[in-house]
Amino acid sequence: MSRVHDMGGRWGDGPVVPGPQGMVPVGAEWQRAALALTLAAGGLGAWSIDRSRHARECLAPGDYARFSYYEKWIAALADLVVATGLVSRAELAAGAADPAPPHPRLFTADKVAPALARGTPYRRETGVAAAFAPGDRVRTRLPARNAFVPGGHTRLPGYAAGQVGTVILGHGAHVLPDANAHGLGECPEPLYTVAFAAADLWGAAEGTGDEVTADLWQSYLEPA
């Protein structure tokens, strides 16, 4: 039921290695190209961020573990352009394509600044009434899973599945990734921040009163 990306709480990863403060260099030329290519292709609007996240999650576990960040991006981008019919498998295998006129939705340089500044808001008006309010106790779905598609995308981390927590924030309705990642529509529903006692999640907390929060959609939750 789980996928390799769902690693919160996992043991065995070793120390975190801090880096210098300030702006982060993108890295080598290929990493710069991977970042820019992914965002530029994303500007075509052929897939949502939910679908692109799912494409990265669908990498084989061995690949996901050994690929660096931008290797995951570029592998997922290759998979997405084929899945959306923009590029054929034969073209990928050949490493070349017949020249074609610019796509009608080509993300041209003049669109970059306004698009990056605007982003893609995910809040929606919806007729789905909020079932919970800050202070309410809720229990999360168990197991963490996509209710529409076996093995599909969800944003309920495994460590927070089947747990009881307290709603601390309401965010209005947001696009439901579980549906949107699979072309099933945006299906917006109320989104909440739920706080869990670390002692409940892990059996024992590192410190008294420590908490972990997650942002969870209404359909992930039931009253507790």
Binding site: V87, A100, P102, T108
Partner: peptide, 15 residues
């Protein structure tokens, strides 16, 4: 990355 960039730019999918 280079191969994918060649394809996407060549096909008019990336500027």
């Amino acid at each position: 990355v280079k191969a994918l960039q060649t394809i996407l730019v060549g096909k008019g999918l990336v500027d």
